[in-house]
Computed example of a mutant assay.
Amino acid sequence: MHSEDKAWIEYREKFSEIYDESNYTSPLQSFVMRASHKLVESAYGKASHFESVLEVGAGTGEHVNFVRHAFDQYTLTDMDQKTLEVAKIKIGKRHEGRLKFETQAGNDLSYGDNTFDRLIASHVLEHIYQPHLALKEWRRVLKNGGVLSILIPTDPGLAWRLGRHLGPRKNAIAQGIAYDYVMAREHVNSCNNLIAILRHYFPGAKESWWPLPVPSIDLNLFFAFHAIVNKREE
């Protein structure tokens, strides 16, 4: 086995154990990551209500803590069962009876058409090969008028590359992770390409950036996108 393949396998095996430590341990890194979750949830406050919500690639369950709107059922999915086990422990009894945890591949969901009122993909789309097909799948499971909410990092923008060098890269290397190699395997889609795809499939969607309200990949760290699905035109 090549050393780079071994590094990748070891990283994936430890992912559920090291993800929170890598991203939420240092005060600065924790602040930035939490700001990203707040960004994508700022569009919907306590006055909003979604009956059924699906989160794709929920990982260790961090994002649900930032959801402000009401919901009847919230389903957290991830292809890694171990991360969902961590999520269950982290979330505990909050939202008791309204949360479900299910192992699902983000680009191949087992749910029927028109199932959910909102779908959230936070820090997910940059990891998926053939993202345009994943978007079609996510659109499929949303009801007419449902909301597709996506958050992506501005990788490889200037601000993102600088921030990564100052923060998570150092933390990961300290844990023995081959960070540059892993990120090359993880972030397979660039932000500018993903934005072009999103705008093509969902014209007129609401967009926001952080930390600056300027539509620039190089000056920001995160990009949020909310599209209302219209299936009546089909």
Rank of each mutant, 00 (worst) to 15 (best):
P153A: 14
F225A: 01
I120M: 12
L119G: 03
G163N: 13
A87D: 01
T75I: 06
D180M: 08
L99S: 00
A184Q: 08
R68S: 15
I152Q: 02
A184P: 01
L198D: 00
K88H: 07
A105P: 00
H49R: 09
S149L: 15
A134G: 03
G163H: 08
S3W: 09
H37T: 01
Y129M: 06
G57Y: 06
G176T: 05
Y24G: 03
F50C: 13
A121Q: 06
I150F: 09
F101C: 01
Q104A: 10
D20A: 02
R140T: 05
L133F: 08
T25R: 02
D72F: 02
H37Y: 14
Y24V: 04
L151T: 06
M79L: 11
S48W: 15
M183A: 10
G204E: 03
K170V: 07
N107K: 10
I177Y: 09
E234L: 06
F71N: 02
H69E: 14
V141I: 12
H165W: 15
V182R: 11
I89H: 00
Y44H: 15
V53A: 07
R185F: 01
A184R: 07
F71S: 01
F101M: 02
A205R: 04
G112S: 13
L219I: 10
A184E: 10
I9E: 15
F222Q: 11
N220V: 13
E13M: 04
M79E: 14
A121S: 12
E234D: 06
E234H: 04
D20R: 02
A159L: 15
F50A: 14
A159K: 10
H226W: 03
W209V: 04
S26P: 00
I91D: 02
K6Y: 12
I120L: 15
L84D: 04
P215K: 15
H63Y: 09
V229G: 04
A121G: 14
R185P: 00
W8F: 15
T60W: 08
A7V: 05
I150L: 13
E10F: 03
G146W: 04
S26A: 10
R161N: 03
R94T: 09
Q175C: 00
M79T: 05
A43W: 12
V214D: 03
L162V: 15
Q29P: 00
G146D: 07
R12K: 15
G45Q: 07
R199M: 03
Y129D: 09
R161A: 01
L219M: 13
E21N: 07
Y24N: 02
R232H: 01
E102A: 03
